[in-house]
């Protein structure tokens, strides 16, 4: 059987010792096709974030395998996993996690710098991305001067810097109002359709359902339901 493009096979994750032991994922197998937007949903504590951490090379499963861009990544060293993150994966967070002291433009430019410190023209590339996201008038603003929706767009621009094939988002719209949330949904959908990016969104937000190619529901660390949208 060929390796998955992105996914987990028989993955189990536990946290803590003895009495405090929590089984976050139990024998989960999931595959995410290239160029699709998958929604992972489920009640709080069901293991969604844990799944995303594994796909993002931030966490190794106790058992099972993780594949990123067709490569089995569990068993790699921390430095090797960092390189995979650097080249292939980017993240969008509920809390944005922008660098507080940098302007919008510098946040995105730093995204480019991390992916390829030697590449020239970071500022120009960052400017292009922000213009695409309608942030042309907020370039020099610092994060605390931006609205939540603008922050998340800057964060997505930073994530897309350097053109990584995979984008993982944990509750990207949970801190946003309806309007800004829909905007983010549209942006990520467009990345899938136009750039062929592979996007995994973890969210409670039902709005995502009509933007996703597939919805996976987790419960108690197991896959409860998988629904493909046609």
């Amino acid at each position: 059987m060929p390796n998955l493009f992105l996914g987990v096979e028989g993955a189990s994750v536990t946290f803590g010792q003895q009495d405090a032991r929590v089984c976050a994922l139990r024998d989960v197998s999931l595959s995410f096709e290239k160029g699709t937007l998958s929604l992972v949903t489920g009640p709080s504590g069901s293991g969604k974030t844990t799944l995303l951490s594994m796909l993002g090379c931030l966490l190794s499963p106790d058992e099972g395998s993780v594949f990123v861009d067709g490569v089995a990544v569990n068993g790699l060293s921390e430095a090797e996993r960092t390189v995979i993150r650097q080249k292939k994966i980017s993240f969008v967070f509920q809390a944005f996690r922008l660098f507080h002291s940098l302007s919008a433009l510098d946040n995105v430019a730093l995204g480019f710098e991390i992916r390829d410190p030697a590449a020239p023209g970071r500022k120009e590339l960052a400017l292009d991305l922000l213009l695409q996201f309608g942030l042309g008038d907020k370039l020099q603003q610092e994060p605390n001067e931006l609205s939540p929706g603008e922050k998340q767009r800057v964060a997505i621009a930073r994530a897309l810097a350097g053109n990584p094939p995979i984008l993982l988002a944990d509750e990207p719209t949970a801190s946003l109002d309806a309007e800004a949330g829909r905007n983010i949904c549209q942006i990520l959908r467009r990345e899938v359709d136009e750039q062929g990016r592979t996007v995994v969104v973890v969210s409670h937000d039902p709005r995502w359902e009509k933007f996703a190619d597939r919805t996976i529901t987790l419960c108690d660390g197991r896959v409860e339901e998988e629904v493909a949208v046609l």
């Binding site: 650097q86 980017s90 995204g111 991390i114």
Partner: peptide, 16 residues
């Protein structure tokens, strides 16, 4: 510290 964690998650090497 949280920002250093973000940097690393985004793929910044230790030396960076």
């Amino acid at each position: 510290l949280e920002e250093y964690a973000t940097l690393k998650a985004l793929g910044a090497p230790q030396a960076f």
